[in-house]
Design a protein around this nucleic acid. Structure first.
Lengths: 221, 221
DNA sequence: TCGGATCTATGATCCAGGTCATACCCTCCA
DNA sequence: TGGAGGGTATGACCTGGATCATAGATCCGA
């Protein structure tokens, strides 16, 4: 099993490229560069000029904005198969957020030029890109609407969203959840403890297990 | 001066269509439908299927999300020449927000189909659309980052942003500013009063005049 | 296997800003 | 021309959640 073959196989499973022909995918693979990062390493910084599209191959990558004094606001948690920061590829602007490897991770870097050529060739892929892009915008707007909800709801919402990515067991620390919902560790710890007392979730160090998602959904009615 | 000619002239000044040929613009004009709304009227509702792109021709249009019990979160203030809700046109989804006329307003409705044909014909226009779209995403993300700032800063930021649209004198009520920054009228009134006492702004009923924008900018350093 | 770092937990305190109540003023229009 | 509704203003009060402090538990590297 060659490295190259492995790469093509991975690309085949990526949503963004499902409408790309086998031949083009092969061509694409020849330009993709694989990079590895250790936990906590920065992949790129907000505001820097962009010349690549990125894909998560293994591990977990967070997009975030640094706020004042060490605080961070995480805007997106990316898992294998997801692309990130294609925005600059479309509007030729800078990176809109910082990307950090939240675990040991390997990512693929694809030159903007290659991506553009691919979109030019295939209207279907252009459409797919726009949809990924659109769902990102919708997601960000939806999040913007809940910022004034009480913390309990925001935590519940975050857990439900993460459930879609990770299944029943969510591998995030309370600090990471806090950065994601825009609050402090202490508050997340208290909230999670309450959920646990209710029997809705079970949690161990670095893991949160949803036992009764429906109870969390109930918080919104 | 015919109604039709007036329309074409207006379209010529719209950023989105600056790369469209005179002929195509004429064709576009023949499909655009003008609609008038009185202050407070709803143009379309969040969640409804979309089949049009919209342009503000006269007046002021707000995009917003209704929250619980009468509260509203305004996400965008649109002035003449701006397009809104092209997102569903790209990803074929529903309206991501509600649009209401904040003043008596006239808007242009352009069928999605026509817009698509135009993009298909002109790569330059496709690129322009993506840029408009991208700047919207960037704007929403930027806003998402400041939600945890103190209200004073958010009001200042909102005023500075509005200044870019309206110039020195901003024609919004305190209630409208409150909906925009995600707080209450009372808090905006107190904040604005403070700014006024400092001599940074001057305000009358329904108007806010920025006297020293630099002082507001200073709040961020 | 030890020691530091990271994660989780819990109590005490504080305050920005939401909520409620009241009042005045301006504008519109019946 | 007067009355109703909307915009502005201000005080009193209350609370969700941030902040600070402390400590046990678990993990990991040397």
């Amino acid at each position: 099993m060659s490295r190259r073959h492995d790469l093509e196989l991975f690309l085949k499973g990526v949503d963004l490229f499902r409408n790309v022909s086998a031949k083009d995918r092969q061509w694409l693979a020849s330009y993709a560069r694989e990079k590895s990062f250790t936990k906590g390493e920065t992949i790129f910084l907000e505001g820097r000029p962009s010349d690549s599209v990125w894909l998560v191959k293994e591990g977990r990558v967070h997009l975030l904005h640094y706020l004042s004094e060490g605080r961070a606001q995480t805007t997106c948690v990316m898992t294998p198969g997801e692309s990130f920061c294609c925005l600059p590829t479309l509007d030729r602007g800078d990176y809109p957020a910082t990307a950090v490897a939240a675990t040991r991770a390997s990512v693929l870097q694809i030159p903007t030029r290659i991506f553009h050529e691919l979109m030019g060739k295939s209207p279907a892929m252009l459409q797919d890109t726009l949809c990924v892009f659109g769902s990102r915008l919708r997601q960000v707007e939806a999040k913007g609407c809940m910022v004034h909800d009480p913390v309990e709801r925001r935590v519940a919402q975050a857990l439900l969203t993460l459930q879609k990515k990770f299944g029943q067991t969510i591998p995030l620390t309370r600090q990471e959840v806090a950065d994601l919902v825009g609050t402090t560790v202490e508050t997340v710890i208290r909230t999670i403890s309450r959920f646990q007392k209710e029997g809705w979730i079970r949690s161990t160090r670095g893991k949160i297990q949803l036992l009764k998602p429906d109870a969390l959904i109930q918080l919104f009615s």
